[in-house]
Design a protein around this nucleic acid. Sequence first.
DNA 1: TTGAAAGCGTTACCAG
DNA 2: CTGGTAACGCTTTCAA
Lengths: 350, 350
Amino acid sequence: MVGALQELLSMSSKPTMRDVARKSGLSIATVSRVINFPDDVPAETARIVTAAMAYLKYRPNINGRRLKMTQTRTVGVLVPTLANPVFATSVQGIEQEAHACGLTVILMSSEYDPEREMAAVSTLLNNRVDGLILTLANADNNPVVDLLQAENIPFVLLFNQPSRGDVAAISVDNARSAFDITNAMIAKGHTSLAMVAGRFESSDRSRQRYDGFCQALQAAGLENPHLVQVKFGEADLKDQLEDLLCGEPAVTGLVCSTDMLAIAAISACRSHGLSVPDDVSVGGIDGISVGGLITPKLCSAVQPTQEMGQQALAFLRGLIKGQANPQSLLLPHHLSDGESIGPFRRRSST
Amino acid sequence: MVGALQELLSMSSKPTMRDVARKSGLSIATVSRVINFPDDVPAETARIVTAAMAYLKYRPNINGRRLKMTQTRTVGVLVPTLANPVFATSVQGIEQEAHACGLTVILMSSEYDPEREMAAVSTLLNNRVDGLILTLANADNNPVVDLLQAENIPFVLLFNQPSRGDVAAISVDNARSAFDITNAMIAKGHTSLAMVAGRFESSDRSRQRYDGFCQALQAAGLENPHLVQVKFGEADLKDQLEDLLCGEPAVTGLVCSTDMLAIAAISACRSHGLSVPDDVSVGGIDGISVGGLITPKLCSAVQPTQEMGQQALAFLRGLIKGQANPQSLLLPHHLSDGESIGPFRRRSST
DNA sequence: TTGAAAGCGTTACCAG
DNA sequence: CTGGTAACGCTTTCAA
């Protein structure tokens, strides 16, 4: 009759709670209750409403809810790029944890560009996310950090190791891991080492790791540390390393700031006819922060990046609920000696 | 005076367009115009409003807009996992393109689980995304595909190669690349080959590639194809491959369904004392769909996954605008012979 | 146990 | 060129 007519009229657009209410002969408020507090409603009522929802193929419009509620149950995630497996894996961890908590993830990437970082965070805030997880190019003196603190938005930095103690961060101790790994190289008899690193402007991790590298050399009384910086998108580490690898005197070992650089360096070494243990290149993929090469054994500082992502989200949830305070968490790293490292702790298949 | 008082009163919560209107002495409608159609408004008016927005640190609430407008300028992305660099890189491509178009990405992962696929798509639809990009475990006879078609939501499959022609998909020709690469192996003199593949239930690619592998063997009149299936999260390819690699007669080559499997297989081969070219393991990272091993040269079918992601979003935009029709796009692959493959076509640094 | 109604922040129509 | 105002779909008091 009239109900059926109205049903037809509203068929063109998506059904709303109003349609479900009409269909079930109950009120819109009751429908809402069935959705949000099923236990506060008689079983029979719930059944009727549920049936109506199914019949109409009703889908709650999250945006209506988000507008009304203060919490959006959405978190923003910003990484430099997903082309680096370290970040991709950490996002996987975040996403996994978010799924478990019923949170939605909005993802953005910055390409290591501070302006894009700010733009992305802006977009995220416009989306009224409940909180943010960020990996920034440089965490110190960062306008994004200032903004977030000023607006009092919960956020945690991931992989950044800010010098200020009052910002939430989860990271490995970058300087320390580089320091340890360099010492391990020295202990193996290396006397001339070079570090392969990304540009300091686009990665505070890079500089911190270089600092650790230098400290170790200095403590051992070794001469000037070499530094090879890989510029944006550059592929020819081979050329850059030529003098160091084939010069006189040649370096005896390389300490690489990241996995991807380690892989590139291995490739470059082989191009120059230098031997690198067979399993090294396989080892570079998963969660190594700092790797050393051209030594009989690969040294590396291992970090489970997926777990770091999960921890970051758990931490963020604490901040959102007000149950935790912003602070830096430095995760322990452990030194690994090559063959134990492989990328297959997780599932495979394309 | 009164304005200042109200300004103070409303300071506790975030400023809205209403606050900006009050502050600038103009109406809420004009503020909206300044934001959305700056050209339709006199420069002076725009200046005043802009100043008020800056003064109040106003941020448009996207959720209000989303509720009102039919388009949300948001796309949903679903991948099995970001722990696989192939998917991560494709998401990077999507994200990059989305940034260029001013679209927001909501990300979910399924862990190859059909139930989670459905749940994720449901969430995405509740978010009223304008369209979806999905990599499904199995695209054929998939309830998610049926749902999306029934609800008439634009979507494109990525890496899936559905048998139906009326669904939008961007993929390499899985069977064909496996066929080609297997032939290349045969041409090099291999007579006993095995395929290493993921579980068919969780990857239609896997089965399609196996089909291509079998076709090539059959065409060459070679005996029964061997198949080694890697189960969920399993690390011990080494044990599984032992009989094949060391048996009597031993296989002379392996064709791997994916990059990650290729890397695992290389590792396993080396554990069994078999030699694999030095640069192979480095080559496994980036966009190889099918890899062959234990031959003097690595064969592989190369696909630029980041570009595939970009294309997928471009395609989706066409569908959303109604300017394109759902259809399968099969991208050409090319065979590569090992040393030309490296992971550093993109930027590095953690 | 249920319903009416007041918003949440925005857009867009229609008058002025 | 500008302003008033009615939605958008939902949650949540407050009454009944």
